[in-house]
């Protein structure tokens, strides 16, 4: 139940920040997927806990929403101590290549350090800086760039398969 509430909250935050049309569809999908996700699986982590946090332009400060997501991630990771993760830092396309690599490293570091401060052992969390090389949203507008300025916690091992 607690997880369901958390998820609804995530969906709400998502709608506030992203384009409404695109987002409500995504949230519905997440809800359906989340309802079917078995505990301790990668699916549960991405759809119920929330695998990513977003940043303001040229910033690596964790917003209160980002901190909430990371707290849920940390709680989940503490519940499943075999899971290892890699935090991927990303930047939007509105910057130069080298700087964006460094900026995305800052974002990955901010997310990783927050997880560690929440009690997740450092050795379970690696990080990588992708710069602007791997956008997820492709339009040339803030609604896409804001989705690309992100840190994504990717499970690299130890999750249950079903």
């Amino acid at each position: 139940m607690l997880q369901r509430i958390a998820h609804f909250k995530l969906a709400l935050i998502c709608c506030l920040f992203l384009a409404v049309a695109a987002c409500s569809k995504k949230a519905t999908n997440n809800l359906e997927a989340g309802m079917g996700a078995a505990p301790g699986t990668e699916q549960e982590f991405t759809t119920v806990v929330g695998d990513r946090v977003f940043f303001l332009e040229d910033q690596s400060t964790l917003t209160s929403e980002a901190q909430e997501t990371l707290r849920r991630q940390a709680a989940w990771l503490k519940k499943y101590p075999d899971v290892t993760v890699q935090v991927e830092g990303h930047a939007d396309e509105r910057g130069t290549r080298e700087y964006n690599i460094a900026l995305s490293a800052r974002r990955a570091t901010a997310a990783r350090e927050f997880l560690i401060a929440q009690g997740v052992p450092a050795r379970r969390i690696s990080s990588i800086a992708y710069g602007k090389e791997r956008p997820v949203a492709m339009c040339d507008a803030e609604q896409c760039w804001s989705q690309n300025r992100r840190a994504v916690t990717v499970i690299t091992g130890g999750a249950r398969t079903s």
Binding site: E98, A102, E113
Partner: peptide, 9 residues
């Protein structure tokens, strides 16, 4: 070249 050191380069 640059080296990443946590959040700094």
């Amino acid at each position: 070249m640059s080296l990443l050191e946590g959040g700094n380069s």
